[in-house]
Nucleic acid binder design. Sequence first.
DNA 1: GTGAAAGCGCTAACAA
DNA 2: TTGTTAGCGCTTTCAC
Lengths: 299, 299
Amino acid sequence: VEDAIEELGYSPNAIARSMARGRTHTLACFSPNLTDFTFANIIEGAENEARAQGYFLLAATAPDRFVFEELIQRLICSRQTEGLLVINPYIDRRDQCLPERFPTVFLGARSRWEGAGSVYLDEVNAGMSATYHLIELGHRRIVHLTGPYCEDCAQDRKTGYLAALKVASIDQDASLICEGDWSATSGYQIIRQLLARGVPFTGIFAQNDRMAVGAIRALREIGRSIPEDVSVIGFDDMPLASYFDPPLTTMRQDTFASGREAAQLLIQIIEHPDSPRKHVRLPAELVVRSSTARAAVVL
Amino acid sequence: VEDAIEELGYSPNAIARSMARGRTHTLACFSPNLTDFTFANIIEGAENEARAQGYFLLAATAPDRFVFEELIQRLICSRQTEGLLVINPYIDRRDQCLPERFPTVFLGARSRWEGAGSVYLDEVNAGMSATYHLIELGHRRIVHLTGPYCEDCAQDRKTGYLAALKVASIDQDASLICEGDWSATSGYQIIRQLLARGVPFTGIFAQNDRMAVGAIRALREIGRSIPEDVSVIGFDDMPLASYFDPPLTTMRQDTFASGREAAQLLIQIIEHPDSPRKHVRLPAELVVRSSTARAAVVL
DNA sequence: GTGAAAGCGCTAACAA
DNA sequence: TTGTTAGCGCTTTCAC
């Protein structure tokens, strides 16, 4: 018999097996896109963990709620997939399309719903650490470049920023807090406007590295030196963050690890549906490079 | 009846349907990793096209041939998947693990096998264009930083580099051709060594942007200016290439489009098994920014 | 046209 | 232990 298997190159049909057992061993991950390093790294981490445990990962881009809903319909309701990983579940209120009682884990935001587990960064503390780093260097007028307010992490990092100011008894100034869209261009344009309006500042805390890089360009264009005139701290520690000029000080987050963690949690929920939905909070780490330095003047 | 469907929230079971019809409408994509922008963008393009045509895309990382083979076994031989996209099929001879007569499309290299279609960049011409750009600016001693020789594109770009030199009647110098591993670090170290050994050159053509960025760092460290002392051209036009200092001159490739194209081809093969295996060659485009300039001296 | 039945390739529960 | 069979939820064919 064994011989015949070899001879004929027989391999069991996975679909028939899935049908008979009612298990597909397939996970899905819905992400706003697959190219942002943060997302790609989460997905890679999740895929590695999934495969190590005998599952496959189906990655799909859900740029908006409409696509998200269609994906749910085609993948989840048709029972093609046993569990779902959702990156950034609260943008465009896509979480409301989720079916009840389906194994789900959120990434990038703490789940507000008891049915889903979640893996997320300790955003508030990260925001505080970044801001505090600047404060300790003597900066008091610190621009805060945020992501879109519809994203939880943007709100939370801002909360951390405000908390750090408060601890240091620095009055917050609404004109220093600006909403970007994560792109380098948005960082560039916002800082250009601030400069044009003559708003004084010596530090910038950008909620991601791309906006930080854009900010640096705007500063350079009018002859400001980094970090001599203005200190800039980013967020993520994206690849090549250390190869920009100057090398970027930033808050590092281990997105690969969060992907693994999330997949592990999801599989746990699938295999033991009654197990509690865990909420894993991961720390960010300050990486000091050369884009931040002691303030030359105190504004 | 329709009402009942609504009432009970019925949705047909995709697995049972797959079983009955013998079609899973699922494609797989095996990539060395999911985080390199080039790969991620291909996958995103493929996923978009696939979904537009009613298929799903299962992305998996195959860092080595062993994992690749396991993936084939679990995904292809078990008929869970109807078609396969392979990024960089010729590294570690993984192409030899491929089953015969299974719908397959290669990405990143022209297929040498009649059974598979392929979508690839016109590497030789791209290599020529990059080199020629430097030659036109008056450079004659041009360092060539290649990717690992086991990858087709590294070989082909080098062929283009040599061809351009030949056209310009510049003797090739083996000491100027160095094999890197795509990382910024490798670019940095190679240029550092060249500089330490006193090898003269005024131009660098790096086969990707990351190595170009590493090279620039090494040059800067010993006080060389870019592009005044040395011109550097990269490859890929990765995100933020224009935000490095100086903004990178590079060869742009549209990897998203190649992903779409490949998925389209693959679906064509699945739905019409007798259709010819096409081989689509895409052009690269020179993007001139500020890391290249006219040579000050001719060596 | 509409409705019943066979079968997709396995697994699991049963009987021998 | 080993061999047989019912059944997973659809699609398709065939008879009505």
